[in-house]
Design a protein around this nucleic acid. Sequence first.
DNA 1: GAAGTTCGTTACATAGGTAAACAGTTTTAC
DNA 2: GTAAAACTGTTTACCTATGTAACGAACTTC
Lengths: 159, 159
Amino acid sequence: MARQALKRSTGIDPEIESSDLEHLIGYNLKRAYVIVQTDFRRTLGDDGMSARVFSALSLCVRYPNITQSELARKMGIERSGLVAIVDALEAKTYLRRAPVPGDRRVQALVPTDAGRTAYREAIAAVQAHEDRLFADMTAGEKETLLSLLKRIRARGEAE
Amino acid sequence: MARQALKRSTGIDPEIESSDLEHLIGYNLKRAYVIVQTDFRRTLGDDGMSARVFSALSLCVRYPNITQSELARKMGIERSGLVAIVDALEAKTYLRRAPVPGDRRVQALVPTDAGRTAYREAIAAVQAHEDRLFADMTAGEKETLLSLLKRIRARGEAE
DNA sequence: GAAGTTCGTTACATAGGTAAACAGTTTTAC
DNA sequence: GTAAAACTGTTTACCTATGTAACGAACTTC
C-alpha cells in the first residue's frame, strides 16, 4: 500500500530503488578504478610507460633475476601477455634477458642501471599522483582503504 | 651504513623495497577490481550480461525514459559506446527505443516487463555474489569501503 | 534564417587480456 | 635408461572494453 503510493509518486519501484548500482561495491570499485587509472595514465603517459609495464619494471627491480613465469604469476597475468611487456622494457634498455646456467629454458630478467633510475623517477611521479588524488583522505583512511583492498585480493588470489 | 648492510643481506635496495607496488592504492585497487570483475562475470556470464549491459539495464529500470546521452553521462562512458549496449538489450527485448514527441533526435529507453524481471533476477544474483565475495567483512567494513570508494569517485567525477 | 549544438550512429584505433599451439628443455615414472 | 609428462618462452589468433573522429538529422540561439 505504502509501496504503491511511493511507486505512484516517483514512478520508481521502491524494490528497485533500494537495490541500485550505487549500493554495489563492485560498481563503485570499477568507477574508482577508472578514475585512478586515467590519472595514472596522465601522470606516466608522457614517460611512455603503461601501468602494466611500470608494474613489471617495479617487480624486476624488486626481485632481480626473476623469470618471466614467476613475474607473470606475481602480476596475475598469462605468461604470453608478458612477452610484449618485457620486449618494451628491453627496447628501452631498462632490463635484459639473461641466460640462467643450469636451466636453458628460462631467462632471468635483470634490471639495468638505466632501469633502476627510470623506476625511481617513475615511482616518485606515481607517489605524487596518489598523494594528489587522495589528498582529501587522512593517512588512516588511506591505510584502511589499502587494507580492505588487500582483504579482497587475499580472498581472490588464494592459491 | 645500516642501509648498506641491509642491501648486502637481501640484495634489495631498501629505498626500493619500501616503495613497492604493494603500498600503492592504485595497484591494489586494480588487483581487487580484477577479482571482483572475474567473479561477477562467472555470476552473470551464464545470463549473457556483461557488467556494462547490466549497469545500463539497471539505470534504464531506475530511470525509465532516459535518453542514451543521459545514460552515457551517468555511466561515465562515451555516447558512441552505448549503441552496442542498447542494441544488445533491445535484442533481448529487455527494453525498446521509443520516439519522444517534441524532439525527433532522441529516443527514450523504456524497459519492458521482461527487462524488469530480468533485472530483478540479475540484481539478486549480483547481491549474492557480493555477499559471498565479501563474506569476511563486517557490514561496517563494507560500508567504510563503499564510502571511501565514493570519495574517490566524487573527486574524479566532479563536473 | 544562418550558425552552432546536440543526438544517435558508424568506422576506425587501441589497450589489456585470454587461449591454443609450438619447439626446446627439464623432470618424473617406470 | 628411456618414455611420458611438465615447464619455459614465444607466436598467433582472438575477444572485450574502451576512446576518437566524423557524419547527417534535428534542434536552439540570436
